[in-house]
Amino acid sequence: MSFNISSVILHYNSINSLRKVIEAVKNQTYNVGQIIVVDNGSPGFKLDEFPDVELLELTRNEGVGKGHNTGWKYALDKYNPDFIWSLEHDCIPFDNCLEELVKHYKRDEFACYCAVEKNDYQFDKYKHFIFNSTGFAEIVDKTKLDNYKGGLSFNGLLLPTWIIEKVGFLNEEFFIGREDIDFYKRIYKMGGYSLRITSALTHHDMHKDKKVLKFGNRVFLFPAQSLFREYYSSRNAYYHALKEGTSGFKLKLKFIRGLLITFIMRNQKIKRIKLRIKAYNDALSGRMGAAELKL
Results as ranks from 00 to 15, higher is better:
Leu10Glu: 07
His89Asp: 14
Gln28Phe: 12
Asn27Glu: 14
Val21Met: 06
Phe50Ala: 08
Gln34Pro: 03
Asn96Trp: 05
Ile84Trp: 02
Lys46Asp: 02
Lys46Arg: 14
Gln34Tyr: 14
Ala24Asp: 08
Asn80Met: 06
Leu56Ser: 01
Asn16Glu: 14
Val25Asp: 01
Lys26His: 13
Asn96Leu: 12
Asp95Tyr: 13
Gly67Cys: 05
Tyr74Pro: 01
Lys78His: 12
Ser86Ile: 02
Asp48Ser: 13
Asn16Lys: 11
Arg60Met: 07
Ala24Cys: 12
Thr59Tyr: 07
Asp77Pro: 01
Val37Phe: 03
Gly65Pro: 01
Val32Phe: 09
Gly63Thr: 02
His89Leu: 04
Asp82Leu: 07
Gly65Glu: 00
Glu62His: 09
Tyr74Arg: 08
Gly33Ser: 15
Lys66His: 08
Ala24Leu: 13
Leu55His: 07
Tyr12Asn: 01
Asn96His: 14
Lys20Thr: 11
His68Cys: 00
Gln28Met: 11
Lys26Tyr: 14
Gly33Lys: 12
Lys78Ala: 08
Asp95Asn: 15
Asn40Glu: 09
Leu58Gln: 14
Gly67Ser: 02
Val53Pro: 01
Leu10Met: 15
Ile84Gly: 00
Ala24Val: 09
Ser86Trp: 02
Tyr12Ala: 03
Arg19Ser: 11
Ser86Cys: 11
Phe50Tyr: 15
Ala24Ser: 15
Cys97Leu: 10
Gln34Ser: 15
Pro43Trp: 01
Tyr79Met: 03
Glu23Thr: 13
Glu62Pro: 00
Ile36Trp: 01
Ile35His: 01
Thr70Leu: 09
Phe50Cys: 06
Asp39Glu: 10
Pro93Glu: 05
Phe94Asp: 07
Asp48Met: 07
Pro51Gln: 09
Asp48His: 11
Tyr74Trp: 09
Trp85Gln: 02
Pro93Val: 10
Glu62Ile: 05
Asp90Phe: 08
Ala24Ile: 09
Thr29Gln: 13
Ile35Met: 09
Asn31Ile: 14
Asp48Cys: 08
Leu10Thr: 07
Val25Phe: 03
Ser86Met: 09
Asp52Ala: 11
Trp85Phe: 15
Asn80Phe: 06
Ser14Gln: 13
Leu47Gly: 05
Ser17Asn: 12
Ile9Cys: 06
Glu88Trp: 04
Thr59Ser: 15
Arg19Ala: 10
Val32Ala: 07
Cys91Leu: 11
Cys97Trp: 05
Asn13Cys: 09
Tyr30Phe: 15
Asn61Cys: 07
Ser14Val: 03
Ile22Phe: 06
Val53Gly: 01
Ser42Asn: 08
Lys46Trp: 00
Pro51Gly: 09
Phe83His: 02
Ser14Met: 11
Lys66Met: 10
Phe50Arg: 08
Gly41Ala: 10
Ser17Gly: 03
Ala75Gln: 01
Thr59Pro: 04
Ser42Asp: 05
Glu88Ile: 10
Val53Gln: 04
Leu10Asp: 02
Ile15Lys: 12
Phe94Met: 04
Asn96Asp: 15
Tyr12Thr: 02
Ile84Pro: 03
Gln28Ile: 10
Phe83Met: 08
Ser86His: 04
His68Lys: 08
Ile35Lys: 02
Ser17Thr: 08
Thr70Ala: 08
His11Glu: 03
Tyr74Thr: 04
